[in-house]
């Protein structure tokens, strides 16, 4: 149970960072005030990916699919306790129950998570993390950040991810011996598995993007917003696009006057991203 004193500190730092980040939002239309730095880190990351992770993922792709699915399932299973904790912290008691049930089934008759027997019994999996919990409690996403290895993130999600790592370390430290090796192996396998699964998609996106960096930024923000909303689309938050069908281009405008809340869904940025094109 080492390092748990770190948790209150994380809360304070997150709230502080998000407050700072939010204050910057109006100054930057895409909420990416560090864009030159982020683009440089993106280029570094692409080189690391090109020469290390991507080739490793291609080799990993030669492992028979059932074995890869087994690894992926087992890694997902290891994340279930913290998903359950985050479900509860978000007030999603029913989803927490599903997660705990999945963990119980898959850890036993699912052979330590290698086989997703829970899904067979109708308990579909989902993932929650500390960044999502902070978002549910109203902590703003903050500015966009791209870091080598970490990839796309934000102050809120970065702090969430770091705290999640600390919690996972403590969780499995208490359950297993030789935790450092265990955590290193699971982290490396997770990165390899995720990269292998996204090989075709990322290649296709890179090949078809007019601006690969901006595309990844948009993908990240939208997918995070969808995860926070548990993949439930809220029609109430759709932006007003009625003004877009006016026949005279010169008259074209969007009604931005009452669209403050509607910005939340668009671009996946809770603050102001919708004004990206309309400032």
């Amino acid at each position: 149970m080492r390092n748990l004193y770190f948790i209150p500190f994380i809360f304070v730092v997150t709230l502080g960072l998000s407050a700072c980040a939010t204050s910057n939002n109006t100054a930057e239309s895409v909420n990416d005030p560090l864009e030159p730095f982020n683009r440089a880190m993106f280029a570094v990351n692409n080189q690391l990916d090109k020469f290390i992770l991507r080739p490793a993922a291609i080799v990993y792709g030669y492992v028979p699919a059932p074995a890869r699915y087994g690894v992926s399932n087992a890694l997902n299973n290891l994340g279930e306790p913290l998903t359950a904790a985050n479900d509860l912290l978000q007030g999603q008691v029913r989803r927490a129950g599903t997660t705990v049930t999945r963990f119980g089934i898959n850890s036993t008759i699912g052979l330590l998570g290698l086989i997703d027997m829970a899904e067979y019994f109708g308990f579909e999996g989902h993932s929650e993390d500390f960044g999502q919990t902070l978002a549910v409690y109203g902590v703003g996403e903050g500015f966009y950040l791209f870091l080598p290895i970490f990839g796309p993130t934000s102050p809120r999600d970065l702090v969430g991810e770091l705290s999640q790592t600390v919690l996972e370390d403590n969780l499995w430290d208490s359950a297993l011996d030789n935790t450092n090796s265990f955590n290193t192996i699971t982290t490396a396998l997770g990165a390899l598995s995720d990269r292998q699964e996204s090989l075709e998609l990322l290649d296709e996106i890179e090949r078809t993007s007019v601006d690969y960096y901006a595309t990844i930024r948009s993908f990240y923000r939208q997918s995070r917003a969808a995860e926070i909303a548990n993949q439930e689309m809220d029609i109430e938050n759709l932006p007003d696009i009625d003004g877009l069908d006016m026949s005279d281009l010169d008259m074209f405008d969007m009604d931005m006057a009452d669209n403050g809340d509607k910005a939340n869904m668009y671009e996946g940025n809770e603050n102001e991203a919708y004004e990206e094109g309309y400032k």
């Binding site: 007019v210 901006a214 595309t215």
Partner: peptide, 11 residues
């Protein structure tokens, strides 16, 4: 469309 919009506006 949102993805394309973000990319085009970035350019």
């Amino acid at each position: 469309a949102q993805e394309q919009r973000a990319t085009f506006l970035s350019v």
